[in-house]
């Protein structure tokens, strides 16, 4: 009987301990959960808002005492979450997925928009293990640069650096973050590129990683239902994002190039252009 009782997939109801307004559209919610405290950087959870929805969210903070998710207001579920107060309850199950693999050496971390928050636990681990980190942070405009202060506070420990690009030029270089990444790759060698952000951006990072022969790990986002690898909602090619991902290597992504960065599946299975 116990075959299906995976501890992580059990629904738990947790209290919102703290809420931080990260940007005008992004809020972070802190909660306590033993299983999430043991999560690997890059893993995700399913967040249940009773009577509304259940949505996948990357953990943006993982520590022994508290964990967090960072939520951009985009649809009904996230709008409702944004109205929740400290002391309110949400349901969670997880953590799910594989998480980032931590190798060694000099790494580039490329975060675009809200995707950056999914990279925060990774940066924490990289810094702890003394990696040399170059963090490239991109957003449409200055106000939407997520987690910049937090990254800046972490990096000095390892002589790391942060560089910023905004599409409107309101902070850092004007343009897209991938152009900045290309500049760095032209001048220096890196042992690994980690990225999370809009898929078109990650697709460009895949092309750059191929061109500069630098290994890549990218964290993908897809619509999800079960989160345990059986419903087939989150598939990209032969991969299930919830189970085989959400972090994929450049090598894996190059096998699904017709799909990655081009389209995803809607809840009804139809292809939706990215």
């Amino acid at each position: 009987m116990s075959a299906y009782l995976t501890a992580a997939n059990r629904l738990r109801i947790v209290k919102i301990e703290d809420i931080q307004q990260e940007t005008p559209t992004v809020k972070s919610f802190t909660f306590k959960d033993d299983l999430c405290s043991k999560a690997k950087p890059g893993q995700f959870i399913m967040v249940w808002i009773p009577d509304v929805d259940e949505v996948p969210m990357s953990l943006s903070g993982i520590s022994p005492h508290a964990c967090s998710i960072s939520v951009k207001k985009v649809g009904e579920a996230t709008k409702t979450l944004h109205q929740r107060k400290i002391g309110d309850y949400i349901g969670i199950r997880g953590p799910f997925g594989n998480g980032f693999r931590i190798g060694k050496g000099k790494v580039m971390v490329v975060g675009g928009g809200t995707g950056t928050t999914a990279l925060m636990p990774l940066v924490g681990s990289l810094v702890e293990e003394n990696f040399k980190v170059t963090f490239l942070l991109g957003a449409k405009t200055k106000n939407e640069l997520v987690s910049r202060d937090r990254i800046q506070a972490l990096l000095p420990k390892v002589a790391g650096r942060i560089d910023v690009a905004t599409e409107d030029g309101s902070c850092g270089s004007e343009g897209v973050i991938t152009d900045l990444a290309e500049k760095y790759l032209n001048n220096e060698e890196f042992d690994m590129i980690y990225t999370c952000g809009p898929e078109r951006m990650m697709y460009k990072m895949l092309l750059l990683s191929e061109r500069f022969q630098t290994p890549l790990q990218a964290s993908l986002e897809r619509l999800m239902r079960c989160a345990i690898g059986i419903c087939g909602t989150c598939v990209i090619g032969k991969f299930r994002v919830c189970r085989d991902g959400p972090v994929f290597t450049g090598e894996q992504l190059s096998k699904v190039k017709e799909e990655f960065g081009h389209f995803k599946r809607a809840f009804n299975g139809r292809k939706v252009k990215l």
Partner: peptide, 13 residues
């Protein structure tokens, strides 16, 4: 015809 299915949660342990 195409069908969206129900909104989540759709699977529970």
């Amino acid at each position: 015809k195409p069908r969206e299915g129900y909104s989540n949660p759709t699977v529970a342990q």
